[in-house]
Design a binder for these strands. Structure first.
Lengths: 197, 197
DNA sequence: CCCAGGAGTGGAACGTGTTCCTATTATGGC
DNA sequence: GCCATAATAGGAACACGTTCCACTCCTGGG
């Protein structure tokens, strides 16, 4: 099993192993926060996590696996955090925009980190499919939760998918300096207005 | 000028230079068609284009610049080809889907090439902004042309933007083996139906 | 308690993108 | 035709992701 996938928490037996995994992900996030994608160098991650290079590769088969796993971990935290409180907003569109605006602001606060995680996500190839699916699952969960109660739930999944796509594409635009943060929100607002009138 | 951008045709004086540029782009596309992103190795491109490595880097500052420029060239050809004939279809939605279906089929026929170009496009950082903008411009041009005559032209640009985003995100999904080619079209169909009812 | 086997360490080595340097060749103005 | 200058060739060198050892350490079953 898990021939090409990263080791997940479920795969890890001992507390020491969970701790190692956490340290590696934390190290990756710290380095990314400071210097972006290029600063996340595998040797540096290993040193900072106090782990051998071979061990890092045993847990995460590539730099991309590592970063996408870090993204999944961040989304997981966000999803858990928001699980119990209702999203504010009168209409489904308002609630979705509230959610997106919150995440967009959070990512603006950590531009380097966002650049690293977004680029890793976008560059990932087929071997990272399971990690990517996890990220998609978390994102869709958060969006459909915000949309719930619109009346036409049947389209919710499709709409959430489109919104997620537009959001990712906008983030890529922001990361590459083509669009400003306000543009991201404007674009999302336009898309949401079209999709959830 | 063009400190970090690729050399465009406009920058090139002599026919010999235009020819070199063409050869390099062709070599990149051929290698990508055969082995995808990883097979586009700068040394191999230089050899196949019969050009020194330094020359390749003078024309294209990085592998990503090279591949995104190749993508722009492909889109350019497509845009020129479709410029004079009307897109078939009764409604704006039908015409957009006709266009997308055509491109999607074309990309399916060259999966390795599509993988290489799509991943390069998505991995690009800020230094590739101008090349990326060119690709976006061409794509938006083709889409708005297909949509023209819908009645609500004012939203056309925003809608074209959303459609382009969804298409790119879907392509990424296809390239990474997460979604099938039919899924791409299904997703596009869903998005277009939501946006151009 | 002991041992077999898995997990982790430390570091060398390799491949490919990128940079850099020198010698050679085109090119355009006189 | 000749020179100054830019462009190209050829290739060494470097950086970082990745692989691969040989060795040590830990852990759980007997």
């Amino acid at each position: 099993m898990t021939t090409s996938a990263s080791l997940t928490i479920a795969d890890l037996g001992s507390p020491a192993q969970r701790d190692r995994r956490r340290r590696m992900l934390d190290a990756a996030v710290e380095l990314a926060s400071q210097g972006g994608f290029d600063a996340v160098q595998m040797r540096a991650v290993a040193v900072r996590a106090d782990v051998a290079l071979g061990t890092l590769y045993r847990y995460f088969p590539s730099k991309i696996h590592l970063l996408v796993s870090a993204l999944a971990a961040e989304f997981e935290r966000a999803e858990v955090r928001g699980r119990d409180e209702a999203v504010p907003g009168g209409t489904a569109g308002d609630r979705v925009m509230h959610l997106l605006a919150g995440h967009t602001r959070a990512m603006q606060r950590e531009p380097r980190l966002t650049e690293a995680l977004t680029r890793a996500f976008m560059f990932a190839d087929a071997s990272v499919a399971s990690e990517i699916r996890e990220v998609e699952r978390l994102l869709t969960t958060m969006l459909t939760r915000a949309m719930a109660g619109s009346g036409r739930e049947s389209d919710d999944l499709a709409i959430a998918g489109v919104v997620a796509d537009v959001w990712l594409a906008s983030l890529v635009g922001w990361v590459t300096g083509r669009t400003s943060a306000e543009d991201v929100l404007r674009r999302m607002d336009g898309a949401v207005r079209l999709l959830l009138p």
